[in-house]
């Protein structure tokens, strides 16, 4: 199966200048296959978010190479990385991070709108289709503040799917939800993964959820401690 993403000896350091240099990631190697549903676990401060930001092209590694769809990303300039992010990647954050000035439907079509600069009927239809899929069609024109936490996170998840990405990166998407809602949101991502074949990488602290993925990558002190493919 094809690699969606590959990390080769990735290191990340912070600091320099006046601040002391701290290495947060000490050489990470792994790859994500098309259609995988992966959990990234590890204690607080182990570097999970840092790794996710690197994979999401929001930051550049200090050393090593990151390949997306078999293409090296280090030679790309910021605009090319932005365009790649727009087309291939989707993000889901812990705190929903919807745009408060826009309705649920507009939030969902925003990645398409932002990438192309203009808004089309087809975009609106796709946004409505996605909302319908998560049972929120009736709430399409509500602002985020009018939605519950679980509803907001479902909007955020389908927003990540707007541009039909190959990989969705989710940083503690259920961390802010009660356990029942967390379960529903997790189940939603699982079903999207199974139906559409979109690869998911989910950072989670919840061992119960991690156990329900295909594979768990465990990060400790900036190094991969375990990388287990689990039987379903």
């Amino acid at each position: 199966m094809a690699n969606v993403l590959e990390l080769q000896a990735i290191r990340k350091q912070y600091g320099g200048g006046n601040a002391p240099i701290v290495e947060v990631l000490h050489g990470i190697d792994f790859s994500l296959q098309e259609g995988e549903f992966v959990a990234l676990t590890g204690p607080s401060g182990s570097g999970k978010s840092t790794l996710l930001n690197l994979m999401g092209l929001l930051e550049r590694p200090s050393q090593g190479e990151l390949l997306i769809a078999e293409q090296a990303t280090s030679p790309l300039d910021d605009n090319q990385r932005t365009a790649l992010r727009n087309r291939y990647l989707g993000f889901v954050f812990q705190f929903h991070h919807l745009l408060p000035a826009f309705s649920a439907m507009e939030n969902v079509l925003m990645p398409m709108f932002a990438g192309q600069g203009k808004r089309t009927r087809a975009m609106e239809e796709r946004a409505l289709f996605l909302l319908e899929r998560v049972g929120l069609a009736a709430h399409a024109h509500k602002k985020p503040v009018q939605l519950s936490g679980g509803q907001q996170q479902r909007v955020a998840i389908v927003r990540a799917l707007a541009n039909q990405p190959r990989l969705v990166l989710a940083d503690e998407p259920t961390g802010n939800l009660d356990s029942q809602t967390a379960d529903e949101v997790f189940q939603l991502m699982r079903s999207i993964n199974q139906q559409d074949g979109v690869t998911f990488l989910i950072v989670t602290h919840d061992p119960r959820l991690a156990a329900r993925t295909d594979r768990e990558i465990n990060l400790v002190d900036g190094q991969i401690a375990r990388d287990i493919h689990q039987p379903i």
Binding site: G56, T82, A83, H97, A101, M110, P111, A114
Partner: peptide
């Protein structure tokens, strides 16, 4: 935060 979200979803700077 909104600017960050827009950037993360691939809005050119």
């Amino acid at each position: 935060r909104e600017i960050g979200i827009l950037r993360a979803m691939g809005t050119p700077s």
